[in-house]
Design a binder for these strands. Structure first.
Lengths: 216, 216
DNA sequence: TGCCTGGTGTTTGCATACAAAGGCAGCGTT
DNA sequence: AACGCTGCCTTTGTATGCAAACACCAGGCA
């Protein structure tokens, strides 16, 4: 159960965060301390600590004496989170265009190429994984760990609301075409171009989400 | 002791965060659970919860079985935090230029005017307070709560390292002159101008910090 | 009939006791 | 004399029990 050197609370935190991000625990789900404790065969203490940390990171909302639920932001707040993500990712892309060392540029190109193959194969889950690596490579390329962490955290918090995104047919190919423009701009050191291309990419992803959301 | 409706853990979190931000607990200070519990006359449980939350917010660092200390970022990471702050504040200022409703614009002007008087009076503590209100008004003006929170959180995390900033002589007057350019750009709806002015303002504040830091 | 009030039940918040993991010091060995 | 090992001690991690707060329901009063 508690493998390795991880503490139980840390283990729970990861597990719950994963369930939230992957959609197993959809927004609004109640998180009962006792129930979780029994399910994971631990006492309430580490469960409480895990929930506190998740609340601090924004994935769950908890109010005193009234329990915790998976965060369910308003439409307005969600729009704000998408906007923040667009700006942060654009910032990372812009910095990456200026600062990314040659080796990382090559790795980015390789990941991008890998994504092309996967998108042609039409495998949504695998594309999702490569897509994450692609964006992470750009965060790292910005050469600013603090900004990279903020950007990743925002992506994680938005993730529960863009689940079935790549299920949607031509999205894979379109996404890859947008990535293409981003990569070219970064490789040619064009900060403004990279930022603009990334902003456009995220905005399109948001639009896809909205199309999906209204149809649910 | 536990006045109002606040829970003990929440109370402790605020108190400790305040002590860290105000410099009472300088970076690197050890945070012993038992010692804090005795000092505040509570058990270790709420102390642990408070420390966990502070760790999640980045103000303290804690490693399993090895205790918690007030966060002490490397010079490189601190530089990254300053850069992030500059970009986030610039983003807020740019959005504010486009989106701020008339009433908030008037309030911003009023705060700015108040700061002028205080800077002429040469009262560092009071200027610090008005300065915070000024920046908060711009965060709010961006009309995006998520971005506003991120920006404020970054400011808070950097705060322990810019303490004695306004002690330094002519900094008050210079700061107010920079604010002037920011306010003018926002009022004329000049997004790029506002962002650029704010970025310059934060960069100068960072430079002042570096001057101060090397002399310690 | 509708609203307020009081009681009860369920859930969270806190305290205390115990377990376990690291760090350190002292001793022995090389 | 220096290095490594072992055992203790300090500190954190977890469990459990109790207290307190909120929500819901029932009963009475307007």
């Amino acid at each position: 159960m508690n493998v390795g050197k991880l503490t139980r609370a840390e283990d729970l935190r990861r597990q719950l965060a994963d369930d939230i991000v992957r959609g197993t625990l959809p927004p609004g789900s109640a998180l009962d301390e006792t129930e979780i404790a029994q399910r994971f065969k631990v006492s309430r203490t580490p469960v409480r600590e895990a929930l506190r940390q998740l609340a601090a990171s924004g994935l769950v909302e908890s109010r005193a004496h009234r329990g915790a639920v998976v965060a369910q932001p308003s439409a307005q707040r969600l729009a704000g989170m998408f906007e923040a993500m667009a700006e942060l990712e654009a910032l990372c892309a812009g910095f990456a265009a200026e600062r990314m060392p040659p080796i990382e540029r090559q790795a980015l190109q390789a990941t991008h190429e890998e994504a092309r193959l996967v998108s042609q194969a039409g495998d949504p889950d695998r594309f999702h994984e490569v897509n994450e690596r692609f964006h992470n490579a750009i965060y790292a390329g910005a050469q600013n760990d603090y900004i990279a962490e903020m950007t990743l955290a925002t992506r994680v918090r938005v993730q529960p609301f863009r689940r079935a995104q790549f299920r949607n047919l031509g999205r894979l190919a379109k996404s890859h075409a947008e990535h293409d423009r981003i990569v070219l701009a970064i490789l040619r050191g064009d900060r403004n171009g990279a930022a603009a291309a990334m902003r456009a990419h995220i905005d399109l992803a948001r639009d896809e989400y909205e199309l999906y959301a209204v149809s649910v």
